[in-house]
Design a protein around this nucleic acid. Structure first.
Lengths: 183, 183
DNA sequence: ACCATACATGTCAATATATACATGTTGATT
DNA sequence: AATCAACATGTATATATTGACATGTATGGT
């Protein structure tokens, strides 16, 4: 499906970027829902360039350090916009190692289960606080056509997801406490 | 990290299974949080057998049709139980193509955004109903040590996640309607 | 007898992803 | 002058995953 292709094209519509900058984007705003590291990005940029969907200018900083600043072409923009209109079939599976572990949790004693859950809880709570802090950047809903709008709604979604996960963990802990005290 | 290895070992603790049956498991109870198809399962079973973590008996149904029924060994069980105790670092990214799309949604007109969101909403609602139907199998919390407990809690988690996704979609639709009417 | 569905096991090729290997510059601080 | 963090670009290897290719049996219904 070449999602990375479209992730890159979408970012380049905002502004021309180097491979290094693209890699950074995947570690900030987009990090909750997409990621790619530079070892994937550089070959993909080369491919997109061969396909005529992006071009680049070489910039020099200092004496010799070269950076390729990639721009999206007219063709690339058309391809991206076309992709953007497509309906997604919701994936049957969202892989989640922790939930797989919990699926098998009858093989653990109650204390261990609670330890594992508390550990997850703490990590999710920490992320939740980071997301809430980030969302302070948005005292109000950005304009629909602003490129902040997308970040705003996926951030909201990340917070809601986080909330739901923490509630689930708390529910699991409750079940385990009730189930083990009654014995 | 060889998650498939542990997914298979965990299933084989419940009961000995053929590769075919394992593949089916990944399409039912576990389907929300893990999946593997037979082209991954058969080679992995061979590998686990070489490592001494599983063994198999050949069963004949009818005249000649052979099926290998895999059993977990003592060593396999120890390996699995050890893995099960491990804390997971929560993943920075849960890849989600639809949210990536929404991140770029400022490039779409409001009607198209709402169409895409409604389409997702419908699909998620349908899945939600399936999950709720499945959860009718559990009029009460299964015993902590029953192998139904794991299925029960991940099913609860799937329902909560689904609820959260639908709420997010509704929120997005609301933002778009408000944002486009005020212009 | 025919047909469809489920049972059953495997391989192959393409793609995707993560991690490590590999190299070098620039600019700011100490 | 030395050091460190950030900038910058690539390749290589291993693993994971998907979808197609490939083959055949068993069972129940018409």
């Amino acid at each position: 499906m070449r999602v990375l292709k479209y992730a890159i094209l979408g970012l380049l519509i905002k502004r021309p970027m180097t491979g290094y900058e693209l890699a950074k984007e995947f570690n900030f705003e987009l990090a909750e829902f997409w990621h790619a590291s530079h070892s994937q990005i550089y070959p993909e940029l080369k491919k997109l360039n061969n396909e005529g969907l992006v071009t680049f200018d070489v910039e020099i900083s200092g004496d010799i350090l070269e950076a390729k600043r990639y721009h999206i072409t007219e063709e690339g923009e058309q391809d991206f916009i076309q992709w953007l209109h497509k309906d997604d079939k919701i994936p049957r599976t969202q892989k989640d190692v922790f939930r797989l572990r919990m699926y098998f949790s009858n093989n653990l004693d109650p204390q261990t289960r609670i330890h594992l859950l508390e550990n997850q809880r703490q990590q999710h709570l920490k992320r939740m606080n980071n997301l809430l802090k980030t969302s302070e950047q948005y005292p109000e809903v950005p304009d629909l056509d602003s490129d902040r709008f997308g970040d705003f709604i996926v951030l909201k979604g990340a917070i809601m997801r986080q909330e739901s996960i923490i509630n689930w963990i708390d529910l699991c802990i409750k079940y385990i406490q009730e189930g083990s005290s009654s014995k």
